[in-house]
Simulated assay, not measured.
Amino acid sequence: MSVLTIVLLFLAGFVSGSINAVAGGGTFVSFGALSLTGIPPIVANATSSIAQLPGYFTSVIAYRRDFARIWRGAMVLAVVSVFGSLLGALILLWLDNEQFSAVVPFLLLGATALFAAGPWLKPKVMHEETAARGRNLSSPIVQFVTSIYGGFFGAGMGIMMLATLGLTEGGDYHRLNAIKNLLANVIAIVAIVVFVSGGVIDWASGLAMVPGVALGGYAGVWAAKRVPQVAVRGFVIAVGLFLSAYYFAKG
């Protein structure tokens, strides 16, 4: 790996971490940068998951005080997330790079559309008692489907989970976001274990990105106070459309 490639991956990690801290969607940048360096799409997807892990951990730390009151209610969702993420990651490894490449532009377009619609997909906040009466099996079933997607690809997963949790769970936004962050860690860790076992991680590229992601996450807190979110969202959407066009052209 050349010094230029290492620098580019570090910078991509920094931008990715910053974007995740401000508006979410940093996976588009990390996956795109890895793809553009010539890494096969399955390996790029798996390596991007590794690179984003520090950001998932720090998001959980931010809600550590909330876990005392949500962990019991979130346990069922965490369990189904394990099985869903496992299934999604195994489906990814079952495909070859040509098959995955054919699916990637559609996944990117869908994730980009989901990200663009994010402001209109804010969670519907319900009182916890109201949600409990109508929840029954809907919450774990919907979370199982979401976690399959998260284990398979993952871009836009956070927005998707906030929207679905808002429809199936109760409580205020911070409770929903705390549950989302917890489940995102579960999904990411399970998928990463599968990817490592399957030998589809480009460790050198991932290690070049991780410090950038960590620094970017810190810098993103500063940027969040100064950079309009609409500008960041516009950049992420542009990256998603560019990558979609790139993979359509390759196909």
Results as ranks from 00 to 15, higher is better:
residue 203 W to N: 03
residue 93 L to Q: 07
residue 37 T to M: 13
residue 44 A to L: 10
residue 44 A to S: 14
residue 144 F to T: 03
residue 130 T to K: 15
residue 152 F to E: 05
residue 120 W to F: 15
residue 55 G to E: 02
residue 68 A to I: 14
residue 8 L to A: 15
residue 191 A to C: 11
residue 160 M to C: 14
residue 27 T to W: 01
residue 143 Q to P: 02
residue 137 L to A: 14
residue 250 K to H: 13
residue 185 N to L: 15
residue 249 A to P: 02
residue 158 G to W: 07
residue 88 G to Q: 04
residue 223 A to R: 08
residue 10 F to M: 04
residue 215 L to A: 11
residue 10 F to L: 05
residue 172 D to C: 12
residue 35 S to R: 04
residue 248 F to I: 11
residue 141 I to L: 12
residue 225 K to D: 12
residue 41 P to K: 05
residue 161 M to K: 12
residue 6 I to D: 06
residue 180 K to V: 08
residue 190 V to Q: 06
residue 232 V to T: 14
residue 87 L to Y: 00
residue 47 T to E: 00
residue 126 M to L: 15
residue 5 T to K: 06
residue 183 L to E: 11
residue 231 A to L: 15
residue 52 Q to A: 11
residue 8 L to E: 11
residue 245 A to G: 14
residue 164 T to C: 14
residue 132 A to H: 11
residue 240 G to V: 09
residue 241 L to Q: 08
residue 164 T to S: 14
residue 248 F to M: 13
residue 230 V to I: 14
residue 222 W to K: 10
residue 122 K to I: 10
residue 49 S to V: 00
residue 20 N to P: 05
residue 121 L to A: 06
residue 53 L to R: 00
residue 111 A to W: 09
residue 40 P to L: 02
residue 27 T to G: 09
residue 144 F to A: 03
residue 148 I to N: 04
residue 103 V to R: 03
residue 124 K to N: 14
residue 9 L to N: 00
residue 164 T to G: 08
residue 246 Y to A: 14
residue 181 N to H: 07
residue 71 W to E: 03
residue 77 L to N: 00
residue 126 M to G: 10
residue 91 I to L: 11
